[in-house]
Every structure is written in structure tokens, then in C-alpha cells.
Write a protein that binds this DNA or RNA. Structure first.
Length: 423
RNA sequence: GGAGAGGUGGCUGAGUGGUCGAAAGCGGCGGUCUUGAAAACCGUUGAGGGGAAACCCUCCCAGGGUUCGAAUCCCUGCCUCUCCGCCA
């Protein structure tokens, strides 16, 4: 959520910056609502003040043993007038709040202009696309040939966009999680957390998935539903919801491995083959919660922490800066890490590292006490995948495949897997 | 699942329906003292919003209700704790 005060003060500039990400802000409508709000609020507060003053007088008169009858008569109609004014104001405030909640974050000044992913800016490339002396298979053919990756049986159990992994692949999958968590906790200074996979509405609201992206979420059917987390970002970032974190505890650096559940509504026909887009997948997430002045540096650092995993696994990748049009709702700036997939002959997203500024913090009321002023100030939040486990598995299978169908184990995983080849 | 207790400011914790946004303590900040620090003492210190300002409004888990007036009374929900049962 943006700062309503700031929007009000500079509506035009806000609209211009939002236009960079293809969002048309209805300036006239907001202005009209705002004007109405001001009038209503003033009126309501005047009535509330009158009620308070009168009630106090009655109390004092009673204490002094005087008759309160005449005073009560004066107050007669006040209650109803106040009730009506409050109701009207609340309706308007709710409406205004709904508008505000629907507005995406302002893009950072460094965000490239553009409509969609074709306009993203490549920042750097690390490694070269893997070369083969034979025609490489994609992970579906590889997995099927080895009998370790079964989409048919998963479809029987659940439906499309699910997978069953077996034997060495299931083991590799688990090893990757272990490897990523080890690196982030032991070398990058993150604290590992274990969190709920089912969360309440407030949590999804805090990180910005709700109310706008309800249709992307899986939810239980309780009257007060639980939501299956679409990413660990939700439970982990919400650790500081409604908190005033003491300055000494900052920065907070958390990492968590969780499954993620997404409906993938609106992606019909996209990545229908293979492991790339599933309703359920594992991810190791990195989250940093920092004072505003440190957030840009933290965003760069977190991105490099995610990159470190790709580097250790010797997977070729590139870093792109998302253009305005491709930016997620809550993000002010995002770097995507794209790994080389020989099976697709393309770079594909394997991590998305986003800077949210105070956008999520404002929704969550996540604050810290400023060391100088002692006043609560909004924190900044940053997160990124480090990495998406399923896609990393795909990348290893495709980049490390041998002509005989075996898969070479990346050196970095040898301590965990204790074998040089799968197959 | 059964029985009970409770949710108040950064924390602990008082609060007879009427100057209660809330005692007290801790913590924080400022000061006195000190070469410096500690201790002691004095002062100060909740959050959000409106307003140029004076000042005003809202908030004592959440949502309703009673009342001229609710932290305090009533209803509903959520959460926490204790005991019993069950259980990975």
C-alpha cells in the first residue's frame, strides 16, 4: 500500500510514476473522494467532540448533585446525527481504502521502461550456455527414460501440474534443499525458520497477495479459511506484522524451505510440459527486513546470495532487471535470475529477488524504532528465491546430462549425495 | 472433545460506567552529580489520523449492542494459558 498522505500531496506525480508500470490511476475520482472524505471527517469529528464535551458536563453536574434533566434534553438528537455521520464516513473510508489497496507499488527510478518481459534489461550473464557433443534431452524425456519422474501417476493422484519423483531424483531434490539452506545459514548469515504452510487472510493481505489475487490462491473451506502459502515470503515476512522491532535486532535475515501452492489461474497452455509450472513446488526463500537506508544494498546482497547457489552448482545464468510493465504488484524493483535450460534452449526464471520498499510494511504495520528519534518508522522488506528447488532440479538434469542418459552430480552436492552419477 | 482462567502502552501489570489514553514498575530519552561510568535523584516518554496552528478525533484482541457517556455492562468471534481426555 502506498502512503495515502503522499498520494494526496502529489497525485499527479504518483500517477506519472504508476504509468511507468502501465497502471492508470484515476486522478479525478480519487480527488473527488478525497474532498468528500475531508468534509465528512470534519463534520463527524465535530459531532464526536460535542458528544464528548456534553457527556463530560453531565458527569460533572451529577457529581455536583445538580439536576441533569435539562442537559439530557439538549443531547437528545445528537446520538442519531452522530451515528449517521459516522456510518457515512466509514462507508467512504472503506471505499477509499479499497481504491488505495488496489494501487501497485511505485517503480524505482532504476526500473527500465517497458511493457512486458521482452523489455526487461539484462544486467549480467554468468557462465556460457552448456555445450553438448550430442543432442541434449529435456528433463521430461530424461526423467521418463530413467523412470524417476512420473507425471501420469501424479495426475491420477491429484491432477495436472503435479509430479511424482522417485529414487535418485527424489534424493537429489532433497539434497538441493539441504545444500541451499546450508549455504544461506552458514555462509550468508540467514536464520533458518520453520513456518506454517497454511496462513490466515491477514498474512496474505500483508504481503499483497490479497485482496487482488484471490483467484491464484488455494484455500480451505472453513468459514474463516486458511490459505495454502503461494511462497514462504508470506509467513516469513509476516513474522514482523504488527510489530515494532527494536533497532538492535535489525537487519532480520531469514531463510526457510517450504512447499508453495499456486492455482496458476490464467496460465492455461503455458509450460504445460514438465516440472516448470506446478501447483505444488518446493522453494528455499530468502527474506530481509531492514531499515530504509539499508534496503537498496540489502536487495543487491540478497540477489547475490541467490546467485551464489547457481554459481556453486556451476549453472549458467543471467540476471535481468524487470521493466515497469513486468514488475509484480508489490515490488518497486525486481531482479530475476534466469538459468540456462538446454532442453528449452533458453534462459528461464529460477529466482525473483524483489525490493518492496515500505509497501508491504505499511500493509503489515511492520515498524522499527528509529534510534535517533525513538519514533516508529516503517521497515523495508526484500525477498527472493534462493532458489526454486524444482526448477533447479530441472536445470541440473538438463545441464549435467550425459550421452548415456546418466546425470552427473554437481561437485557442490557430492558431500551430501556421496555419488558422482545418478543412473 | 470436556472443565476453568484470561487477552490493557516497547515489556510487566492496576483499573468502583463519568476529566482514564489509562496507576505503578521496568525499559527508553533528557538532565543533576562524576575525570568517565555505574548508582542515586529530577524531568520526560503509547499509536494512528485531521488541521497552517491552537487544537480536535480514533484506538485498552476483533465485530456488534446497551447508555447522554464504555477499558469497565451484554452478545458473537478469534487467540492464549491451566487441568482432564485423545493423539504424531
Amino acid at each position: 500500500m502506498l502512503d495515502s498522505k503522499a498520494i494526496r500531496q502529489d497525485l499527479k506525480q504518483t500517477a506519472e510514476r504508476l504509468a511507468l508500470r502501465g497502471y492508470a490511476l484515476d486522478v479525478a475520482e480519487l480527488e473527488a473522494l478525497e474532498e468528500k472524505r475531508k468534509a465528512l471527517q470534519t463534520e463527524t469529528q465535530a459531532l464526536q467532540n460535542e458528544r464528548n464535551v456534553r457527556s463530560k458536563e453531565i458527569g460533572q453536574a451529577k457529581a455536583a448533585g445538580q439536576s441533569v434533566e435539562p442537559l439530557l434534553e439538549e443531547v437528545n438528537t445528537l446520538g442519531e446525527r452522530l451515528k449517521a455521520a459516522e456510518a457515512e464516513l466509514n462507508t467512504l473510508l472503506a471505499e477509499l481504502n479499497d481504491r488505495l489497496l488496489a494501487i501497485p507499488n511505485l517503480p524505482d527510478s532504476a526500473v527500465p521502461a517497458g511493457q512486458d518481459e521482452d523489455d526487461n534489461e539484462e544486467i549480467r550473464r554468468v557462465g556460457e550456455p552448456t555445450k553438448f557433443s550430442f543432442t541434449p534431452l529435456d528433463h521430461v524425456d530424461l526423467g521418463g527414460k530413467l523412470g524417476w519422474m512420473d507425471f501420469e501417476v501424479a495426475a491420477k493422484l491429484a491432477g495436472s501440474r503435479f509430479v511424482v519423483l522417485k529414487g535418485p531424483l527424489a534424493r537429489l531434490h532433497r539434497a538441493l534443499i539441504q545444500f541451499m539452506l546450508n549455504v544461506h545459514t552458514q555462509e550468508h548469515g540467514y536464520e533458518e525458520v520453520y513456518v506454517p504452510y497454511l496462513v490466515n487472510r491477514d498474512s496474505l493481505f500483508g504481503t499483497g497477495q490479497l485482496p487482488k489475487f484471490e483467484e491464484d490462491q488455494f484455500a480451505t473451506r472453513d468459514a474463516d479459511p486458511f490459505y495454502l502459502i503461494p511462497t514462504a515470503e508470506v509467513p516469513v515476512t509476516n513474522l514482523v506484522r504488527d510489530e515494532i522491532v527494536s533497532h538492535e535486532r535489525l537487519p532480520l535475515k531469514y531463510t526457510a524451505h517450504t512447499p508453495c501452492f499456486r492455482r496458476e489461474a490464467g496460465s492455461y497452455g503455458k509450460d504445460t510440459r514438465g516440472l516448470i509450472r506446478q501447483h505444488q513446488f518446493e522453494k528455499v526463500e530468502l527474506v530481509q527486513i531492514v531499515p530504509p537506508e539499508d534496503s537498496d544494498a540489502a536487495h543487491e546482497a540478497l540477489t547475490q546470495h541467490a546467485e551464489a547457489i547457481l554459481q556453486r552448482l556451476k549453472l549458467p545464468y543471467r540476471v535481468v532487471s524487470l521493466c515497469g510493465g513486468d514488475l509484480g504488484f508489490s515490488a518497486t524493483k525486481t531482479y530475476d535470475l534466469e538459468v540456462w535450460l538446454p532442453g528449452q534452449n533458453a534462459y528461464r526464471e529460477i529466482s525473483s529477488c524483489s525490493h518492496f520498499g515500505d509497501f508491504q510494511a505499511r500493509r503489515m504495520k511492520a515498524r522499527y524504532r528509529h534510534p535517533d528519534t525513538q519514533k516508529p518508522e516503517l521497515l523495508h522488506t526484500i525477498n527472493g528465491s534462493g532458489l526454486a528447488v524444482g526448477r533447479t532440479l530441472v536445470a541440473i538434469m538438463e545441464n549435467y546430462q550425459c550421452e548415456d542418459g546418466r546425470i552427473k552430480v554437481p561437485e557442490a552436492l557430492l558431500p551430501i549425495l556421496n555419488q558422482e552419477y545418478l543412473g
